[in-house]
Design a protein around this nucleic acid. Structure first.
Lengths: 187, 187
DNA sequence: CGCCGAGTTGAACTGAATCAAGAAACGTGG
DNA sequence: CCACGTTTCTTGATTCAGTTCAACTCGGCG
């Protein structure tokens, strides 16, 4: 729980009331590897804080799973679009390792927004992070070669590299598994 | 001015006070073709509403201009990241046609947020739109062929297709101008 | 022991970039 | 209103990065 406060503290100084109300609506659970927190077509009702483990978001495209983001220790995550709009999601979320998450429902978060305006910053922070991350990926896909993208990835996500399978990473980078294997060889 | 209200009305019903305060902080001006609303390295102080014309955001990559988004009539736009954080921008903004914009400064918008919480929706709407748009582009770059991306573009942005140069579109699609020319030919 | 998923390697193929040159379209000034 | 230079677009020839398909290796695990 304290980790959550640590994450939020640079952005919002929470009063004791706010903290108490937050603690009241936060749940937590263990997530086994490969468990799906959300399936395509469902509405994402929660925003999550990843205590430990790795989680990914992905979409189906012609039967292939395209990874669109990773979350690791101390990251906030959710199916952005679905959570914000509370409409069905086009992406799914699954754990790539046994993980432990804290989470708050959309409804409870709305209440927090109203009673403690400081919490509005959460939304902004999350959006900002997601946006910047996504933007970097788009630019990378738009302008860099497969090798450059991989090198970039090594720098940006060293932990994920170690702990995730080749196929998942290659789909994130938008290249085939074989090509990634060869790229990796030539380094 | 009424157009702005029309854009906002589906999301927030504004009281007369709110409207008056909004009108007080909105400026407007004519932008000639090729004029830069923001240069890379500068902080984006304004959020804009495009009354007419076309505007694009772009980045420099190895001396080439990579278009990252387009705005057209009735779109809200800004250099997202820079405007939110009020830090220097990595992207520039320029008009692709003679345009007319309404705009609000970051500072005035903050004041509006405080005095009229309804306005918080503006931020959310804008972010949502930007995010979804960006996400679609990322997926497109990650999974589709040049031809598919172009066909997609035709459907999504027919107006921009008509009114923008080939080079600008090709950089948005992440393909060379020559290839786009050939793709266009074979349809 | 044999299966299974994950990763590697090879060979053929292909989509798209690059380089280079020409054709249109466009605006500006004489 | 034409002539000129500039920018934008097209077309061809060549090259190359990355895909695809297919076979093979390796390390676990029932």
């Amino acid at each position: 729980m304290n980790q959550i406060l640590n994450i939020l503290s640079p952005f919002a100084t929470l009063g004791d009331d706010a903290k108490a109300d937050l603690f009241n609506v936060v749940s937590h659970k263990k997530i086994p590897k490969n468990y799906r927190l959300l399936d395509e077509g469902g509405v994402c009702r929660y925003i999550y804080f990843l205590h430990n483990g790795i989680v990914r978001g992905f979409k189906n495209r012609d039967g292939k799973e395209i990874t669109t983001w990773f979350a690791c220790e101390n990251d906030l995550f959710t199916a952005m679009y679905s959570f914000i709009t509370q409409k069905p999601s086009v992406e799914s979320i699954e754990a790539l390792e046994d993980s432990y998450v804290y989470f708050i429902s959309h409804k409870d978060l709305q209440t927090l927004f109203k009673t403690h305006p400081e919490f509005n910053l959460i939304g902004r922070i999350l959006t900002e992070r997601y946006y910047v991350q996504l933007e970097e990926r788009a630019i990378s896909l738009q302008t860099q070669s497969a090798t450059e993208r991989y090198q970039n990835f090594i720098v940006e996500h060293p932990q994920i590299l170690q702990r995730t399978s080749l196929g998942v990473i290659s789909s994130y980078l938008g290249i085939s598994q074989e090509t990634l294997s060869r790229i990796r060889k030539n380094l």
